[in-house]
């Protein structure tokens, strides 16, 4: 039997534009998701430890293939305040999804067929980054959305005290600078697609702060801590000139 109740259903909204469907690996320790977007440029890794759910019960390993497109529609109409419960019995072909709106007490139940998802197995090695910078998530989202209105990619430059997001395109250029208190092993400069950063920043509601881990020649990491877990977004570095 598997039963998990989750109070941050907005997490689904944060990843739906990157991943259309995914296996959810359910273990006694918690739920994990690890998947790559179709263009192979971004990877989403989510870990929700059992302690973050009330209740959580999983007595055997279970992989649920879930359409995030469908899940998003279900969660969207329930609103941000809804809790989401997943239930599965010994038949892994279907699972139950229960949405509960705390304000009104309304309960919506679905029986969903588990999808058979042909998913790459990803091994994510431990990486030492040149810069690991934590900034307010709302500021990060504001910067990404603002610059992306006119421009397509952003160059990140970080020094001891400041991180600078600068961008240029046909219409001209723009930049945003933020103070930070993080440690750097040295100054760093790299370029990232704003379209993806805007996507990653949809996780803003999950956490007050976001941590950017940057190095020139390895995937960049954008991480949001959630209660008893995290949502991590990796982005491929640019290659060639």
């Amino acid at each position: 039997l598997f039963h998990a109740r989750f109070e941050q259903a907005g997490l689904v909204d944060a990843i739906k534009d990157l991943i259309q469907d995914s296996d959810f690996h359910c273990r006694d320790s918690g739920i994990a998701l690890r998947n790559m977007d179709n263009s192979q440029v971004a990877v989403v890794v989510i870990l929700l430890e059992a302690g973050g759910f009330l209740p959580y019960h999983c007595d055997r390993r279970l992989n649920l293939g879930i359409s995030l497109t469908s899940l998003t529609k279900i969660v969207h109409y329930a609103g941000d305040e809804a809790t989401l419960a997943l239930k599965a019995n010994d038949n892994p072909d279907t699972f139950n999804l229960v949405l509960e709106c705390l304000q009104t007490g309304c309960i919506i139940k679905y029986d969903i067929k588990s999808r058979d998802i042909d998913q790459e197995h990803l091994e994510i090695p431990k990486t030492d980054y040149a810069a690991t910078i934590t900034i307010p998530s709302a500021e990060f989202q504001r910067i990404c959305r603002n610059l992306s209105q006119l421009l397509e990619s952003v160059a990140n430059e970080a020094s001891e005290e400041r991180i600078k997001f600068s961008s240029s395109g046909d219409i001209g250029s723009g930049s945003a600078t933020l103070r930070h208190n993080s440690d750097l092993t040295g100054p760093i400069a790299l370029t990232i697609s704003l379209k993806y950063l805007v996507n990653f920043s949809k996780a803003t509601a999950l956490s007050y702060s976001v941590t950017l881990s940057l190095s020139s020649e390895v995937p960049q990491l954008v991480e949001y801590k959630v209660e008893s877990g995290f949502a991590r977004f990796y982005f491929a570095p640019q290659i060639g000139e």
């Binding site: 192979q40 990803l122 990796y234 491929a236 640019q238 060639g240």
Partner: peptide
Amino acid sequence: PAGQGSLLSYFGQK
């Protein structure tokens, strides 16, 4: 021209 690398080359199954 500069391009975006694939994450499979970093995270693909060993």
